[in-house]
Write a protein that binds this DNA or RNA. Structure first.
Length: 105
DNA sequence: AAAATGACGGTGT
DNA sequence: TACACCGCCATTT
């Protein structure tokens, strides 16, 4: 993948999300200074080559829904991973109320 | 350079 | 709660 400063920055923040917690695309977008670039952030995840290194599976939609995953068996694998890390699920969605990552304020 | 694409978010009905 | 629409952004063709 071609190097992208913004992508690298997103990955760096993504690495700071602890196991058992999840972040949202919009949240990451905001942290990199592009509050409305959630969509672009999603593209960075899809093109991620650092799967094991970057916990891209800890990123979910703002409503807690798992919108995609490039590795394993897709959403299923992503859900299993999060569940295994201790993330609380509410049906098909993540219980953001308890598992939403809260960046340093 | 312009148009199309996609792992989004918010609002309205 | 479910579905439809619009707005936004970076990457790719």
């Amino acid at each position: 993948m071609k190097p992208s400063p913004l992508r690298d920055q997103v990955y760096e923040i993504l690495r700071s999300i602890p196991a058992g917690k999840v972040g949202t695309y919009g949240q990451l977008a905001r942290l990199v200074g592009r509050p409305k670039a959630a969509r672009a952030i999603g593209m960075f995840m899809s093109t991620n080559s650092d799967a094991p290194r970057t916990p891209c599976h800890r990123v979910v939609a703002a409503n807690g829904r798992l919108t995609g995953y490039s590795a394993g068996n897709g959403i299923s694998t992503k859900k299993e991973l999060l569940l295994k890390e201790g993330v609380i699920f509410k049906g098909e969605k993540v219980d953001l109320k308890q598992s939403l990552w809260q960046p340093s304020i």
